[in-house]
């Protein structure tokens, strides 16, 4: 799949809360086709301490308006600077990068998409993509409190939404893997993205129940397209780049102790 380097125009910069912003970017040229799970490397301008681009998941894509959504969690100066960009300014992106989630084999498959924190970002795109292909999605989204549950209204357009919070302020109290949904139902496919401990817990559940499971990893990268070999993860085939062989991996390929 051909990769591009383009300046995209910021059409919306919405502060969701003190940790998260949603950037909507418009392309002057027709956006290339992208698949859920893929990401962009975003150049951070005017930040002396930020040298490298930042890998950010594609949150949603609207081919009709030629707009791309990026959900940003502010974790350091690079992402902070990115969230201070103003409508009308541009961001330079390398995209689309990486592989994507696999589609289920059968139409009536029971699907569960589990997200935590900023890890929900690629799952919105995945949910929209699956709904467009007539699959029925269940979303299980977790956060520390209700302030960390993002884009719930958007998710509701594409399937059933279940939530957990650690403080019980929204949905069931606890972690996503403690949700009653996992005790009461069986799923054919689980897709997950979020903090590593959460993904490992989900992978452990999937392994025990013999369920197909794909996780989206987030390793630090210098390039994002397979040149620097910095973002490797250990797999059954040895060290592979998360940016080109991933970010999406089937759990059977990873050497996780689960």
């Amino acid at each position: 799949m051909k990769k591009f380097m383009l300046d995209l125009i910021v059409t919306k910069n919405e502060t969701l809360n003190d940790q998260y912003s949603l950037l909507i970017l418009k392309s002057p040229e027709k956006l290339p086709e992208m698949f859920p799970g893929q990401f962009a490397e975003v150049r951070v301008d005017n930040s002396p301490t930020t040298f490298l681009r930042r890998p950010i998941s594609i949150n949603y894509i609207d081919y009709e308006t030629n707009e791309l959504w990026l959900l940003i969690q502010i974790v350091g100066e690079g992402t902070l600077k990115m969230c201070q960009v103003k409508v009308g300014e541009t961001l330079n992106l390398l995209f689309p990068l990486g592989n994507s989630f696999s589609l289920p084999n059968q139409k009536n498959a029971k699907l569960l998409l589990i997200g935590g924190g900023v890890g929900i970002a690629p799952l919105l795109f995945l949910g929209a993509y699956l709904k467009d292909k007539d699959f029925e999605c269940n979303f299980l989204l977790g956060g520390r409190s209700k302030d960390n549950l993002l884009q719930l209204r958007e998710f509701e357009q594409f399937g059933n939404v279940f939530t957990t919070t650690e403080d019980g302020s929204h949905g069931e109290r606890g972690f996503v893997t403690q949700h009653s949904l996992l005790k009461d139902s069986n799923f054919d496919y689980i897709y997950t993205c979020g903090p590593t401990p959460m993904m490992k817990a989900v992978a452990s559940y999937a392994a025990k129940t013999n369920t197909f499971c794909e996780v989206s990893l987030e390793n630090t990268m210098a390039c994002g397209f397979g040149a620097c070999l910095c973002c490797v993860t250990d797999t059954t085939e040895g060290h592979v780049c998360v940016c080109t062989e991933g970010p999406v991996f089937n759990i059977t390929k990873l050497k996780w102790q689960i």
Binding site: L52, C230, V232
Partner: peptide
């Protein structure tokens, strides 16, 4: 060569450290 274990990279002021290890 499999190279070194992850993490292999650290961003630094105006630069980066790498420890790929000739993978």
């Amino acid at each position: 060569r499999q190279g070194n274990a992850y993490p292999r990279m650290a961003e630094t002021p105006s630069g980066m450290l790498n420890a790929v290890g000739l993978q």
